[in-house]
Amino acid sequence: MSYSVLIQPSGLRFNAEAGRSLLRAAEDVGVVLPSSCRNGTCRTCLCQVREGSVVHTIEWPGVTREERAEGWILPCVAEARSDIVIDVPLAASFGD
């Protein structure tokens, strides 16, 4: 199963396979999201879900309970559970 991911404000789109982090799924198709540690601690990839749902693959990712309630996620350790829209102002494609 895969889910559609729309990145705002760029309008970039990609599909994320179930079981694949959003960061890896983006990279698979040439979409560049900010990243550094890739393990949920540095917060470089922090972004906000506007629509849809995700699940973090680690128990305590580097987001607070309040941030999670506001839709903030870490794509390096998050997987889509539905079609989603995320707000990532610095997203780009490899050709940009």
Rank of each mutant, 00 (worst) to 15 (best):
V85H: 01
T64N: 08
E66I: 05
A78N: 08
S21V: 04
Y3R: 09
R24A: 01
P61Q: 07
I84M: 02
S21P: 03
M1E: 08
R20Y: 03
G62E: 00
L23N: 02
R43S: 05
W72K: 10
I73D: 02
V32S: 02
S93V: 09
V31T: 07
G11R: 09
V32F: 06
E67D: 07
G52V: 04
L33S: 00
L23M: 06
A91W: 04
V49F: 04
C47F: 01
V55S: 02
T41V: 10
I7H: 01
S21M: 07
A69C: 09
S10L: 03
V49P: 04
C76W: 02
V88A: 03
R38D: 10
C47W: 12
S21A: 11
E79C: 06
T64K: 09
I84S: 01
L46K: 12
V77K: 05
Q48H: 05
P89T: 10
R13K: 14
D96P: 09
R38K: 12
A16Y: 03
G95V: 10
D87E: 08
T57V: 15
E27A: 14
D87K: 04
D87I: 00
W72Q: 00
F14R: 12
G62T: 12
V5P: 08
V29F: 11
V77M: 09
G52P: 11
I84H: 02
A18E: 14
L33H: 00
L74V: 04
C42H: 02
S35M: 08
I73L: 12
P34R: 01
R24M: 09
A91N: 07
I7Q: 12
W60L: 08
A80F: 02
D83L: 08
S82Y: 05
G40P: 00
V54N: 01
V49N: 04
A18H: 06
S2Y: 11
V49L: 02
T44H: 07
L22S: 01
V77C: 15
L23G: 00
A92V: 14
E70D: 05
S4M: 15
Y3T: 10
A26M: 00
P34K: 04
R81D: 08
E79M: 13
L33E: 01
F14G: 14
S35Y: 13
E66W: 03
I73K: 10
G71V: 03
R24G: 00
C45N: 08
G71D: 03
D28A: 15
G52S: 13
V63K: 13
T44A: 05
A25L: 02
L90D: 07
G62H: 07
I84V: 14
D87Q: 08
V31L: 03
S4H: 13
A91Q: 06
R38N: 06
